[in-house]
Computed example of a mutant assay.
Amino acid sequence: MNVTEVPAIAGAYLFEPAPHADERGFFARTFDREVVRSVGIDPDGFVQDSLSRSALGVLRGMHLRSGAGEAKLVRCSAGEVFDVVVDLRPDSPTYLNKEYFELSGQTQVTLYVPAGCAHGFQALTDPADVSYRIDRPHDPAEDVTISWADPELAIPWPLPVSMMSERDRQAPSLADVLDRLRREFVTAEVSP
């Protein structure tokens, strides 16, 4: 398994497996604790695995969590997605940078998204299955969503959006979310 640092997002990595292919198809190791540990990520820190299935053109995002945030390993296990990460960590050297990836069931590449980064994707196939491995139990009270169409982000979504959740459709602007996160951070620092 090869590991590649993502220069535009500090602390993000791509884990590229070496599939073994034959007439039956392929076999690929998609998680290796020692490889994950080699780049400073605690492999035992992940507590939940989830899977989403999306139809062609479905958009999910842009999502992040408030509080301590949420680091995740993301992999398209079947189909293909256009994947987006935006660094929203104020102390990061890549603050407000964004990066785009095409994740595919053909390659089984896994993307590590550090806590404090917004993440979203659009399905490029019908269906597209995306697996998530997260480092904290999900708490809906900490869910934060940023408008997928925010002009400041100007994400070049490759397809017309066929469907999205009502939460994603009604999401606030990046500026509003950054203001909310700053207020929460100040409140957390002041609290005893």
Rank of each mutant, 00 (worst) to 15 (best):
N97A: 08
L181Y: 10
F101D: 01
Q48L: 11
N2F: 02
D44K: 15
P140Q: 04
V74W: 01
D49L: 12
A71H: 05
E34I: 02
A154P: 10
P140M: 06
R75Q: 12
G57I: 14
R37S: 05
F185I: 00
A12L: 05
P156N: 13
Q108N: 11
V6I: 13
V74Y: 07
G11L: 06
G11I: 04
G11P: 05
S165N: 02
F101Q: 12
L181T: 06
S165I: 01
L14S: 05
D135I: 06
G67K: 07
R136I: 04
F185K: 14
F27R: 08
E189Q: 12
S147D: 07
D83L: 10
P19T: 14
P140R: 04
R37E: 07
I146G: 02
L59I: 09
A8C: 04
V109I: 07
C76H: 07
L111D: 00
G79S: 12
D32P: 09
P156Y: 11
T4H: 10
D22S: 13
L59F: 14
F185Y: 02
I155S: 11
A8V: 06
A188N: 04
A171V: 09
A128H: 15
L159Y: 15
S104N: 14
P17G: 13
L103F: 08
R180A: 09
E184K: 09
R33C: 00
V85N: 04
S66A: 12
F82N: 10
D126W: 11
N2I: 01
S147M: 00
C76F: 09
E99C: 14
R180G: 04
A12M: 02
A12W: 03
V47Y: 06
E142Y: 03
E142I: 00
S92M: 01
D143H: 08
Y13D: 00
I146E: 01
L124F: 13
E34G: 07
S50Y: 13
E16Q: 12
F31C: 14
I134P: 10
S92L: 01
G40Q: 01
A71I: 05
A175S: 12
L153D: 05
S38Y: 04
T145E: 03
D135Q: 10
A55P: 11
E166Y: 07
P114D: 00
D143E: 10
L14T: 00
D135N: 15
V47Q: 07
E184G: 02
F31A: 08
A55R: 15
A21I: 09
H63K: 07
S173W: 10
P172Q: 11
R24I: 05
A141P: 00
H138E: 03
R133E: 02
T125Y: 11
V47H: 03
R29A: 09
E189N: 04
P114W: 03
S54P: 06
T107P: 03
V35K: 06
G116S: 05
V84H: 13
D49N: 11
D168V: 03
V35S: 03
